[in-house]
Design a protein around this nucleic acid. Structure first.
Length: 107
DNA sequence: CATCTGACCTAAT
DNA sequence: GATTAGGCCAGAT
Protein backbone atom coordinates (compact mmCIF):
# COMPACT_ATOMS: atom_id res chain seq x y z
CA UNK A 1 0.00 0.00 0.00
CA UNK A 2 2.08 2.83 1.24
CA UNK A 3 5.10 0.96 -0.04
CA UNK A 4 3.73 1.45 -3.53
CA UNK A 5 3.74 5.18 -3.06
CA UNK A 6 7.23 5.21 -1.66
CA UNK A 7 8.72 2.91 -4.27
CA UNK A 8 7.08 4.89 -7.04
CA UNK A 9 8.37 8.10 -5.58
CA UNK A 10 11.82 6.59 -5.35
CA UNK A 11 11.78 6.20 -9.15
CA UNK A 12 11.27 9.88 -9.81
CA UNK A 13 14.48 11.25 -11.34
CA UNK A 14 16.01 14.56 -10.28
CA UNK A 15 14.70 17.69 -11.96
CA UNK A 16 11.25 16.19 -12.38
CA UNK A 17 8.28 17.02 -10.22
CA UNK A 18 5.03 15.14 -9.78
CA UNK A 19 1.80 15.97 -8.05
CA UNK A 20 0.23 13.92 -5.33
CA UNK A 21 -2.49 12.87 -7.72
CA UNK A 22 -0.03 11.73 -10.36
CA UNK A 23 1.96 9.89 -7.76
CA UNK A 24 -1.12 8.07 -6.50
CA UNK A 25 -2.13 7.28 -10.07
CA UNK A 26 1.25 5.86 -10.97
CA UNK A 27 1.24 3.84 -7.78
CA UNK A 28 -2.03 2.24 -8.86
CA UNK A 29 -4.25 4.20 -6.51
CA UNK A 30 -6.38 6.45 -8.70
CA UNK A 31 -8.21 9.23 -6.95
CA UNK A 32 -6.32 8.79 -3.75
CA UNK A 33 -4.02 11.78 -3.82
CA UNK A 34 -4.83 12.42 -0.22
CA UNK A 35 -3.60 9.04 0.75
CA UNK A 36 -0.31 9.71 -0.97
CA UNK A 37 0.16 12.85 1.04
CA UNK A 38 -0.73 11.04 4.20
CA UNK A 39 1.86 8.38 3.50
CA UNK A 40 4.60 10.95 3.01
CA UNK A 41 3.66 12.64 6.22
CA UNK A 42 3.64 9.44 8.15
CA UNK A 43 6.74 7.77 6.80
CA UNK A 44 10.06 8.53 8.41
CA UNK A 45 12.07 6.90 5.64
CA UNK A 46 14.35 9.04 3.55
CA UNK A 47 12.66 9.60 0.22
CA UNK A 48 12.67 12.41 -2.29
CA UNK A 49 9.47 13.91 -1.02
CA UNK A 50 10.62 17.34 -2.17
CA UNK A 51 9.74 16.49 -5.77
CA UNK A 52 6.07 16.22 -4.89
CA UNK A 53 3.87 19.28 -5.35
CA UNK A 54 0.21 20.08 -5.61
CA UNK A 55 -1.50 19.64 -8.94
CA UNK A 56 -1.26 23.36 -9.59
CA UNK A 57 2.47 23.33 -8.98
CA UNK A 58 2.31 25.00 -5.62
CA UNK A 59 4.30 23.87 -2.63
CA UNK A 60 2.08 21.95 -0.26
CA UNK A 61 3.22 23.81 2.82
CA UNK A 62 2.36 27.23 4.15
CA UNK A 63 5.03 29.86 3.51
CA UNK A 64 7.93 30.42 5.82
CA UNK A 65 7.73 26.98 7.33
CA UNK A 66 10.84 24.86 7.62
CA UNK A 67 9.66 22.25 5.15
CA UNK A 68 8.58 24.88 2.67
CA UNK A 69 11.98 26.51 2.53
CA UNK A 70 13.76 23.19 2.46
CA UNK A 71 11.68 21.97 -0.44
CA UNK A 72 12.27 25.15 -2.42
CA UNK A 73 15.97 24.88 -1.85
CA UNK A 74 16.16 21.26 -2.91
CA UNK A 75 14.12 21.83 -6.05
CA UNK A 76 16.22 24.76 -7.07
CA UNK A 77 19.37 22.76 -6.52
CA UNK A 78 17.96 20.22 -8.98
CA UNK A 79 17.36 22.86 -11.59
CA UNK A 80 13.64 23.30 -11.10
CA UNK A 81 12.34 26.85 -11.45
CA UNK A 82 10.59 27.90 -8.31
CA UNK A 83 9.06 31.34 -8.31
CA UNK A 84 6.89 32.58 -5.52
CA UNK A 85 6.54 29.14 -3.99
CA UNK A 86 5.28 27.69 -7.20
CA UNK A 87 6.60 25.65 -10.09
CA UNK A 88 5.66 26.33 -13.69
CA UNK A 89 3.62 23.20 -14.21
CA UNK A 90 0.32 23.69 -15.94
CA UNK A 91 -2.11 20.86 -15.76
CA UNK A 92 -1.81 18.61 -18.81
CA UNK A 93 1.02 20.83 -19.96
CA UNK A 94 3.62 18.66 -18.36
CA UNK A 95 7.26 18.99 -19.10
CA UNK A 96 8.57 16.29 -21.49
CA UNK A 97 10.55 14.67 -18.73
CA UNK A 98 7.33 13.79 -17.03
CA UNK A 99 6.23 11.87 -20.09
CA UNK A 100 9.36 9.77 -20.05
CA UNK A 101 8.79 9.26 -16.38
CA UNK A 102 5.26 8.09 -17.05
CA UNK A 103 6.31 5.66 -19.73
CA UNK A 104 8.96 4.26 -17.46
CA UNK A 105 6.73 3.91 -14.45
CA UNK A 106 3.85 2.40 -16.34
CA UNK A 107 5.73 -0.81 -16.46
C1' DC B 1 -19.08 5.13 16.98
C1' DA B 2 -19.28 10.31 15.10
C1' DT B 3 -16.62 14.21 13.73
C1' DC B 4 -12.60 16.87 12.38
C1' DT B 5 -8.57 17.46 9.98
C1' DG B 6 -5.34 17.45 6.32
C1' DA B 7 1.82 17.51 2.57
C1' DC B 8 -5.20 16.49 -2.13
C1' DC B 9 -8.08 16.82 -6.97
C1' DT B 10 -11.50 18.17 -10.30
C1' DA B 11 -15.11 20.76 -12.21
C1' DA B 12 -18.11 24.50 -12.25
C1' DT B 13 -19.29 28.89 -11.17
C1' DG C 1 -7.42 34.46 -10.63
C1' DA C 2 -10.91 33.15 -6.41
C1' DT C 3 -14.57 30.40 -4.26
C1' DT C 4 -17.72 26.37 -3.75
C1' DA C 5 -19.03 21.85 -3.77
C1' DG C 6 -18.14 17.10 -4.07
C1' DG C 7 -15.09 13.14 -3.72
C1' DC C 8 -11.27 10.67 -1.36
C1' DC C 9 -9.13 8.24 2.93
C1' DA C 10 -6.15 7.34 7.24
C1' DG C 11 -5.52 9.22 12.05
C1' DA C 12 -6.67 11.89 15.90
C1' DT C 13 -10.06 13.36 19.31
Amino acid sequence: MSEKILTTLALVPPGVVVSYGQLADLAGLPGRARYAGHCLKKTSEVVNWHRVLRSNGQIAFPENTLNYNLQCEKLKSEGVEVKNGRVNMKRFGWIPDTYTLLSVLKY
